[in-house]
Design a binder for these strands. Structure first.
Lengths: 155, 155
DNA sequence: TGCGATTAAATTGCGTGCGATCTATCTAAA
DNA sequence: TTTAGATAGATCGCACGCAATTTAATCGCA
């Protein structure tokens, strides 16, 4: 947590352009649109791709562990994982040790899709028009912001 | 558009933490959660609040103009505006000059809700834990990123 | 004036995203 | 051992968000 400096009052204007949350919101929409064509060709969606990244990163995880990494609830993940399973990209099975948990892992087909999307994303990265320093700084600041927001909303 | 410098290859790792799009995506989820309680108390949602900001900013706009500001399609805005109308926060009426267009404006009740949310958001801004310089820089970089992405996806 | 092309919004279908709730399983204390 | 509580996923209902399509109004040009 950086110093919790209070924003000066004159920053509190009422225009959309003054809202940091709107900058994040609209940039997220823009990323969705930028990636749309790539994902459509592969037959997956943006959050499904994030799930494949998480699975490729660590393999064999429970729904809860995936949710922690992706910041999603089981009510979101369960249907998403069932769609990935129906597409043949992941497997879901009850853990033998603890039947409450469901373990998810990538199939070879899922790994192939992940790698195709991973290669394709380079053109999107170039489309950001950011120099590497800005890219890295932006990423770091966003993650700090995210974690501060989550920490405060879990008070 | 800044210089379109190519990202160095070694930045292309496969972990969620390396994806700028995931940083934006998850920060957006975090903002949603941070604002949730405030909006719930007021009986609106996060995108509805963005719509109220846009309406307060300029008043009396068509659905298309709102969509341009909010980066949303009519298929998203029409139901959202109907819900705001049902709640009594906006009015929708066909333009007399051009009956294809629908003009939307804030009611006094809508303006009151906007102002209550506007005051309440200060605590969320403090929860970001960002110093003002970082806050401003982040906002500027995000908007540049967003506009570059949108420009490239409209090729 | 007539009529095809264009435009604005609405509708439809599908995939998130979440709170609330439900079910099945596991844990722990009496 | 029994059973109350906790835990992990799944289900349900609702609100986005968009592509594709439809409907209604306007425009353009002969």
């Amino acid at each position: 947590m950086k110093k919790p400096t209070k924003m000066p009052k004159q920053e509190l204007a009422g225009s959309l352009a003054d809202f940091l949350c709107f900058a994040v919101y609209s940039t997220n929409l823009a990323f969705n649109r930028a990636y749309k064509q790539l994902f459509e060709e592969l037959g997956i969606t943006y959050p499904q791709y994030a799930t494949l990244i998480a699975l490729n990163e660590a393999g064999d995880q429970t729904v809860g562990e995936l949710g922690d990494k992706l910041f999603l609830e089981s009510s979101t993940l369960t249907p998403l994982l069932k769609r990935l399973e129906a597409a043949g990209y992941v497997t879901r099975r009850r853990d033998a040790e603890d039947e409450r948990q469901v373990r998810v892992s990538l199939t070879p087909e899922g790994k192939a899709i992940f790698e195709q999307a991973f290669c394709g994303r380079e053109s999107v990265i170039e489309a950001t028009g950011l120099d590497p320093d800005t890219f890295v700084r932006l990423q770091r600041d966003l993650i700090t912001l995210r974690d501060n927001l989550l920490a405060s909303s879990n008070k």
